[in-house]
Structures are given as C-alpha cells and as structure tokens.
Nucleic acid binder design. Structure first.
Lengths: 242, 242
DNA sequence: CACACATGAACTGCATGCACTTTCTGTGAC
DNA sequence: GTCACAGAAAGTGCATGCAGTTCATGTGTG
C-alpha cells in the first residue's frame, strides 16, 4: 500500500507542499523554483530540494532544464486536451473497479466530501477547485491499485495546471452534482452508468475549461496593444520566488 | 565550454541501461542495485546513480526502501493484471490518435520493425520480447503526445517485468501477426477496428502470460521438494550485483 | 549441533564544497 | 540616451565525507 508509507522522507514533504500550492494556484505555470531557496524554506539542503524537484518533474508538474532554475510546468493547449483524454479513460477504470464494491465507510467518506464541496461553494474558488480535484484522487485511492492511483493523481494535478492557463472561472455547481451522481451510480452498482457519468463529467470539465483553442493569438503586437496605454495595470503580476 | 556531446544527462544514461537490462531480462525482480556499485560501473558518483534510481522508482521499475538497497521491482499478480487493464486503454488511445494519420515513412518504419521481429523469431527469446515491447513504444512515440508516451512506456516495461515473474514462455508467432494487423488497420484508417485489434492483442498477451493466478503455491515445502535431490541444479541463479 | 548475539563491513541519508553556467547590474563608449 | 560589455551575483552539476542504519559473518553458549 503506497498511501500510508509515511517515509518521513523530507523530499516528499516538499513535493506535497508544492503539489498543493499548484492545486491552490499559489503557484502558476512558469513560476521559478530555485533549489537552494526551496531547501532553505523547508530547512533542508539543496540535495533534498533537488530530489523533490526531480520527482515533481517526473510527474510533469515541473520543468527542469540543464543549468537553469526549475519552473512550474506550462502545459500547452494540445497537451491539456490530450491529458483529459487520458484522464477520462483512467477514471473510467477507477469507477469500473469501484462499482458496487464501496464499503459503507467509503460511501460515507465520499458523501462527506461532497458536503464539504457544497460548503465551499460560496467560499474561495481556489478551495472549490482543490476539493473537486481531491474527490477524483480519493476515488482512485479507494481502488487500491497503485499504478492507477499514480496516473490519476498525476493527470488530475496537471489538469489543474492547465486550467490555470486556459481555464475560465470554475463553475462548481454542476460539478458537485455530477460528483453525487457518480457516487450514486457506484453505490447502485450500475457499472455502465457509473462509467458514463464519470466520462461525461470529465468531458464537461474539459469543455467548460478548454472549449476551444486559446485565442488564436493572431499577432503579438495586437495582444500588447491595450498595455501600451500609459497608466494601464501591469499585464502579469511580477514573478515571485518560492 | 564543455563538449556538447555530453548534454545527455548522465543519470538518464544509467536509467536507459537499466531499463534495457530489465527488458532483456538481464535483471529480474528482486535483483539488487546498490548505488555505489552502480556509480562505479558507470563512472559517476553515487549522487548520479541515486538520482537515476529515483527516476526508475518513479516509473515503478525499481523499489526504494529507506536505508535499504534498491531492488528491481517485483510486481504482484494483481498489479500485473491491473497494469494490463490500464495499458489496454492507453494503447487504444494510441491507435485512435494514429489511425489514418501515419506518414508513409512511419508505416515503413513499423513494417521494418515487424520484419525484424520476424527475423528474431528463431533467435533468442529475449530479443523477441524486447522487439515486441519496442513496437508498442514506437507506436506511442509516433503520437507525439508526451504523457501518453510516458505512460505507455512505463506500463509496457512493467508488463515486461511481470512477465519475468508470471509469464510462461513467450510465443511470438501470433504476436507478430497481431502487430501486422494493427498496422493494417491503422493504414486503412479504420479506427474502430484498429482499437479492437490492439485491445485484443494486448488481452491475448495478458492471457498468454497471466491466464490465472500464479500456481496456488500450496506449500512452500512442496515447491522445494524437487530441489532436495542432492545433485539437482540450483533452483535460481544466484543473485548478481549490478 | 543449533541458535542467539555481537562485531565489523557494506550501504544509504544527507550536507557541504568547488567548479561551472546563467543572469543581473552597473559602467563606459559612442 | 542607448547600447555593448565586463564583472559580480545567483544558481546549478556533481563529488565527497561523515553519521547512522542494515546486513553478514563469525563467536560463544546451551
């Protein structure tokens, strides 16, 4: 069981922190992650920070280029779309594995989760997005299948990253209802329906976010035009550290 | 300025070597991979070897336990079965992406590959297995989708590992025919057929290898019985290093 | 003869240091 | 004022050393 193997591993602590920061959009694509500052912040040496960055890179959340500062990954539109295709198939496997096999305790936990999502609906959008993502990861955990969990987790987190770039505001209303529907189908043991509901849900999420290619982006100069006005606000917040 | 040739990360050189060794069964599940010996063998420090092992661990090919020597992963039977389920869906995505979109050059390359498989049919089984696996990886590469490639590669390699443990002798005859059939369907642009052929092929591979749970393994003593005969050959080759 | 135990070898976990590369900044030429 | 460029500052790539853990071998005891 991979889940509880609390290695006390300090590298994975850093990984978790960064993953969560990405999930909550505290970190955005392109943000720099210098290994020494990272190490300093977490009270470990660069060696550990470096290891963590390597791990995150292998998950596709961070980009490593030789001799350059690591940055949060910037998925392209095509990658985002492909990611969702993969994710849909993976999560169909998840519900197939879980269908009719959830313990009462697990059902209870999932219901509690949707309640929390409900509660967060009017709160910060960031929390909604995190909870929505965690719902999918929790499901994958329940399968007890390590590889499936790993892939679902990775694609889910990366989807989140893509949404940072391409997503319009996340409308959580229907998402919560869809989560409930998934639970219903799972409890009912209706495999076909569960798989369809899940696939439909993810397709909806993708559509809401990635309906079409990012603005054609005709000419760089046109994009910059509005910013040419003297007192306009700065186009992008300045890059932060760590 | 350093020689440009060595841009190729030295860690990934080690990774490739180990992956290939696994593919060719030079390394079997459970084999030890001490980082210092690894480093020595490849002319690098433990730091690099360690990094490589971390990478391989994240791919599921190596198991890392704290304070213990890294070992080649030992997938359980259930994991192997689950792995194939995932792999089937992933490779369905691969053929869907490629269907009717292969360039003549790519078709040429795939045909050449099956020819090579044909040629290797009577040779070492190890080579057949490697070629068969590489066929699937080549297909995934042709999609140009990085995540899909990564997951297909990982599951393919791990399948190979599972086969080391559970597989009966690999009968490559039908596998080659099935590969050809996949190419045919892709060229014909028949998406449904291509996906079905690929899924069927992988299902066959899984069935041939994992038809049922590993021998019930009734009693350890029974298993050892044949080896109790004085002059019998050693039950398992002794563990090597590196 | 079997078995518990102690002792040293082997190995990992991690920090640190040095060499090299990239990035930033300030200075001088035009 | 602008551009080019040199030098400093910041950062990465990697090896190595030390401390702590695990593993293996041999020794003594019942």
């Amino acid at each position: 069981m991979t889940a509880k193997g609390e290695h006390g591993d300090r590298a994975s602590t850093i990984c978790r922190a960064i993953r969560r920061a990405i999930l909550e959009r505290a970190l955005s694509p392109g943000d720099k992650l210098p290994e020494d500052q990272l190490g300093e912040r977490f009270g470990v040496s660069r060696t550990i920070a470096r290891h963590a960055l390597g791990q995150l890179a292998s998950e596709g959340l961070v980009e490593l280029r030789r001799n350059r500062i690591a940055v949060v990954a910037t998925p392209s539109f095509e990658e985002a779309r492909d990611e969702f295709d993969i994710r849909i198939e993976l999560e169909r496997l998840v519900v197939r594995a879980l269908c009719g096999r959830l313990s009462p305790r697990q059902v209870e936990e999932l219901n509690a989760h949707t309640l929390e999502e409900e509660r967060a609906r009017d709160g910060s959008e960031v929390v909604s997005l995190r909870l929505a993502t965690e719902f999918h990861v929790r499901l994958a955990e329940m399968t007890g299948k390590p590889t499936l969990l790993r892939y679902v987790r990775e694609t889910a987190y990366r989807s989140c990253l893509s949404l940072s770039t391409f997503g319009r505001p996340h409308s959580s209303d229907c998402a919560i209802a869809e989560h409930r529907e998934v639970i219903d189908a799972l409890v009912a043991g209706d495999e076909k329906r569960a798989m369809n509901v899940m696939a439909g849900h993810l397709d909806q999420v993708a559509r809401r976010a990635l309906l079409q290619a990012p603005e054609p982006r005709g000419d760089l100069m046109d994009i910059l035009a509005p910013y040419a006005i003297p007192n306009a606000p700065s186009p992008r917040r300045t890059k932060r550290r760590t």
